[in-house]
């Protein structure tokens, strides 16, 4: 067991993935000597060399487009997009090329590419540094999308993503990068594309992923003091969704609150709500409620704490769910 920050857990996971498979490359802006602006790739270039840890020119489409070519040549590139709001120049390569290559080739050409994106707000950053674009990728057939929420998952999920023969957009909760937890590097992880109950409860099911898992857990502690039992599920995988633990939970609680930092309109919560209503309509005691960002662009950071869902807004939604 090792105490690791989430960022360091990712570093360890990447290091192990590179040790296990010489075809694994790390590429992105400032990932070499600097170790990335969040230091997630710290020390990798020193140990694996400039051929495997590549400081790229400053152009996101170029990062993903060349990764496509490297994947066609048999490599497994792990691309770092420096911040969520900078992924859009690469959007065409991700959506039109990475996502479709296997399909266009009738399954002949795998795209084992991982696209790491630090996402979400709460760090007082300037604009374009706090966004949550996960639904835009979850909506794209051909991609798989996951979000880690804690150091243990960070360590294992990044390795599982690298091992996947399908392209994975890997969201990292940037405001949780510095939070520590025990990581068992010899432990056994859950499958990558699975959700998990992280706190058992009986009254309301609260679904979250990435940075909001901790918020949901804190809300559950607070609710417990008021005699309300919240079951918290870390979705972990956003495409495909792993609905079985969710549906099992909802059949017991009859009430669901979905929490994410992303805007609610057509977000992950909307898809979850549709699936829940399709699969366990008669178990529901209340409509599926969503707690997310307002449908505005991300605001100036001095008011981001009001924009982002927090413990109180989660509890407010829990109250509304229980009022039915």
């Amino acid at each position: 067991m090792t105490q690791l920050t989430l960022a360091k857990a990712l570093t360890h996971g990447l290091r192990r993935a590179m040790d296990l498979d010489v075809k694994v490359l790390v590429m992105g802006e400032d990932v070499g000597k600097l170790g990335g602006v969040f230091r997630v790739t710290d020390g990798l270039q020193k140990d694996f060399g400039e051929d495997r840890v590549i400081d790229t020119p400053l152009a996101e489409s170029g990062i993903i487009g060349t990764a496509v070519g490297l994947a066609l040549r048999g490599y497994r590139p792990v691309c770092e997009i420096q911040f969520d709001g900078f992924v859009y120049p690469a959007y065409d390569q991700i959506v039109s090329q990475v996502a479709k290559m296997r399909f266009r080739s009738q399954g002949r050409l795998p795209m084992p590419i991982v696209i790491r994106i630090p996402f979400g707000g709460g760090i007082g950053a300037v604009e374009h540094h706090s966004e949550s674009p996960e639904a835009q990728f979850a909506h794209t057939a051909g991609l798989k999308v996951v979000a880690c929420s804690n150091p243990f998952d960070a360590y294992w999920m990044i390795q599982q993503a690298v091992a996947s023969d399908d392209p994975v957009v890997f969201f990292e909760p940037k405001r949780r990068y510095w939070e520590k937890a025990e990581v068992d590097e010899d432990g056994s992880p859950d499958p990558l594309f699975s959700s998990r109950v992280v706190r058992a409860g009986t009254d309301v099911t609260v679904l979250a992923y990435g940075p909001m898992v901790k918020t949901a857990q804190e809300a559950a502690v607070a609710a417990d003091a008021e005699g309300r039992s919240l079951e918290v599920i870390d979705l972990r995988t956003l495409s495909p969704l792993d609905m079985d633990p969710v549906l099992e939970s909802v059949r017991r609680t009859g009430r669901v609150v979905v929490v994410h930092e992303a805007t609610v309109n057509l977000g992950i919560g909307a898809e979850v709500a549709a699936r829940v209503s399709e699969e366990c309509f008669y178990a529901l005691e209340a409509p599926v409620l969503r707690v997310g960002a307002f449908d505005t662009p991300y605001p100036p950071s001095r008011i981001e704490e009001e924009y982002l869902p927090d413990l109180d807004r989660v509890l407010d939604a829990v109250d509304r769910a229980l009022a039915y």
Partner: peptide
Amino acid sequence: GGWDPRDDGFALYTIVIGAQTLHATGYAMG
């Protein structure tokens, strides 16, 4: 795209204009 690019060293046709030049460059780096 009905052929296997690896058989003849000829990638699939690319319709999005210019996208394949990056694939080519990445492949060359490989």
